[in-house]
Amino acid sequence: MGFAEEHHKWLEYHKNRRSGERLDRLERGHRHGEQMFVERVWWPVFGHMDDLHPEFEVNDWRGRPYFVDFVWKPGQVKFAFEIKGYGPHVQNTDRTRYRQELNRETYLQISGYRVVAVPYDDLESAPELTISLLKSLLAPCLLKKSEGQERPYTRLESDILRLAARWNGFIRPVDLVNELGVNPRTVKKQMNALCEKGKFRPVPAPGSNRVCRYEYIHSFMEDELW
């Protein structure tokens, strides 16, 4: 399936899950610049739009809703992409609005997002530059294991790592037993191995030496979660 069909399907997926202002903002906000970014940059790099959210609603430092052009959330990593044209962002005569925009970007960084400004003009005239910069920035997420290269984790260990990344970095043995359908002894063996590999830290129950959960030690340089 080509880009046009995938883009339409992706957009309809998000529209069907929104209503009110969130839906209206998606219909109004995903315009020419945003569509160019998806078609000329994102699609050539990834070949899909998984985990990419258009006109994503967040709160600013005042608790007011704000819509980011794109948010990419694969696991624990969060990127915020803003398409910026010269007129609205540089020649903006509304100084209050301009200050608020800068403060929002700072607050996004505080909230754990890596903010990326994408020049609108480059999308029109030099998308290959944006592609090159984006690949360098996202390289840890794009690396692929070469065929025949030994993977650092078994399939079950990789499943556990993916679950921990989705569940805010903490995981209980009972969660793994229920989610993966394996017995408690297998879970304990796998978690001990992952602790030895530096991927988890055991967290004992208060006032006890009994491990009640494990803290996932995230590394942005790992590609097996993506």
Rank of each mutant, 00 (worst) to 15 (best):
F37C: 14
A139S: 13
V211Y: 02
R185C: 00
S219P: 07
V177G: 10
R97M: 09
E5H: 13
P184Y: 02
P204F: 00
E5C: 11
E27C: 09
F67V: 03
V38K: 09
C141L: 15
L176M: 10
R40Q: 10
C195M: 12
E21F: 04
R185N: 06
W167I: 03
D24T: 12
E124R: 11
L143V: 06
P65A: 00
R155H: 05
Y107N: 09
D94Y: 05
D69V: 09
E34N: 10
A193C: 12
F67E: 02
G207Q: 08
R25I: 00
E222D: 10
V58W: 02
Q100W: 13
F56T: 03
G112E: 10
P184M: 04
D94L: 10
K199A: 13
T93W: 06
G20K: 13
L134R: 03
E147I: 12
R104D: 09
E157Q: 14
F37T: 12
E82P: 15
W167Q: 08
W61A: 04
R18C: 14
Y153L: 13
V187P: 00
F200I: 01
F200C: 04
H7T: 00
H218L: 05
A205W: 03
L137K: 05
P152E: 12
M191R: 05
E39Y: 05
S19D: 15
K15T: 04
R166M: 15
L11I: 01
P202K: 01
C141R: 15
P44E: 09
E128I: 02
G207P: 07
M49Y: 07
R64H: 11
L129S: 08
C195R: 13
L163F: 06
A193I: 11
S136V: 07
P88R: 06
E101A: 12
L102Y: 14
G33Y: 08
Y153N: 11
A139I: 05
E147P: 09
E57F: 07
V41I: 10
V45E: 06
R99D: 14
K78C: 05
A126E: 15
V116W: 06
V118T: 01
F37W: 13
V115S: 03
W72R: 02
D24C: 08
D175I: 04
L11M: 04
S208N: 02
V45D: 10
K188D: 13
D223Q: 07
V177Q: 06
V38T: 15
F56R: 00
V174T: 14
K9Y: 13
E21N: 09
